[in-house]
Design a protein around this nucleic acid. Sequence first.
DNA 1: GAGTGGTCTAGACCACGCT
DNA 2: GCGTGGTCTAGACCACTCG
Lengths: 275, 275
Amino acid sequence: MQEGCLLARVVDSRADRPVHKQIADRLRSAIKSGVFGPGELLPSEHELAAKYGVARGTARQAIVLLRNEGLIDAVQGLGSFVREPEPVQRLRPGGLSHGLETGRDPHDPPPDGDRHGPVGGRLGAPPEELMMSFATTQLEKASAPADVAALLGLPAGADVLVRSWEASYKDNVRTIASAYTRSDIATAAGLIDVESGPAAYLALIASGHRITRIIEEVSARMPTTTEAQRLDLAPGVPVLSIQRVNHTADRRPIEVTVSVMSAERYRMLYELGDD
Amino acid sequence: MQEGCLLARVVDSRADRPVHKQIADRLRSAIKSGVFGPGELLPSEHELAAKYGVARGTARQAIVLLRNEGLIDAVQGLGSFVREPEPVQRLRPGGLSHGLETGRDPHDPPPDGDRHGPVGGRLGAPPEELMMSFATTQLEKASAPADVAALLGLPAGADVLVRSWEASYKDNVRTIASAYTRSDIATAAGLIDVESGPAAYLALIASGHRITRIIEEVSARMPTTTEAQRLDLAPGVPVLSIQRVNHTADRRPIEVTVSVMSAERYRMLYELGDD
DNA sequence: GAGTGGTCTAGACCACGCT
DNA sequence: GCGTGGTCTAGACCACTCG
């Protein structure tokens, strides 16, 4: 067989580093150096155990490590595969009509062609294929979470209009989002009848509340189990969480939106203008 | 004993959901509902095994799940604890006149005061407590990685000046960064002698290459093992990866910087101005 | 020394995808 | 049916922290 040529034969059980980590190290570098290319099948747990002379559980631990690093996918009944890179979509959050025009950006492979983001993208006909559908999951008045209330300059527990929705592309949920709008503004704008997020911008404008300043906060974390299910996330894939605070011309914050999406699939793009 | 009052007594081994996930579910909701507060000690693996009538390995699997979700920390010899939230710093990347700030800004509508970022920081006295030290780890001419070359509009494999450094705060490495500068520009600006990232901006300005446009791309992923070590990351903590493309007034990209930091500790703040 | 998590073994049965 | 990963058991020894 001599398969040992690919994955070096020996692990040192007396070394500082635990055996399963040593095996993971070897597999990892084999992946990174291209010995196993994207989509390729790795040795089975049984094979690894035999090759390194360890119990199956130990070989499995190595595999689990790589899964949690997002490097491989395990499929029951089939085996473990080197994870193939997901097509990445770059989102350029825009205000109402942001700069960064059709700017053929020097960004190498990105041509996702447009910037119709799951949240707050420009309105108006998005390119054919990038149509996303929005499904409202909740629409109600409720008391604002503490952090949201603070951002809106409201007392803790104040009522806000909460609109929650999911944005899907081809039947796959891509973004889970919620918008929290000041009650007074929401009522005036008739937002109670507006379902998806993007549509709300039109309603706000129509009611005279033009948003002229947006502060966006980007963070990342591991998904909750709910998020992992809804967004169909593999193990070892974090989420991006985008929190927006929308302000009107008088610099008053009137709305906070929070959206969550796969960090494997989305990146955020910002242009920092000259000061 | 009746400890079963806190963690419900029974798990159903015939249910669809595996036992270790059921245990994890119970612990997770106990944590989220505050039964176990931040920093608090969870039941030991042995206790969990006894309480649910399962093998230790099964109880341990539940614990491992929560660790990978970033909810708890396990300490050998002590036990598992609910992870305490890290103080979060919000970075406001800015054009030139700004840099590293740590977020003294109280989350609320972020003030427009000063701004600092881990990359491209303002020089001159930064706020007392926020001093970061920069240690150059590499400084050399090398051929650009494919993606970087593309971003700079250079042919694949073209030479660039690579400056790599780590930014530390109180002896803890907080950011790992690299800057790739076009060779011609770097030479003209004398960058070969400049060590940390922030300092390079001054050199560029001094040599007449004023950066007027910055495109910043924010992504997140699980850390490599190297990154996890250097940044001292707990399991279940992703990293934010910030890629910057710096352009001069004529819109030519002259430099790409990439920085990596704990997503648990840092968030990015952007203001989307009115156009 | 007692208790904890970290590692490892050598089995077992199951659910799943394939042929 | 066969091989895969997913789960689980019942042990074992180790490294670590604490009193």
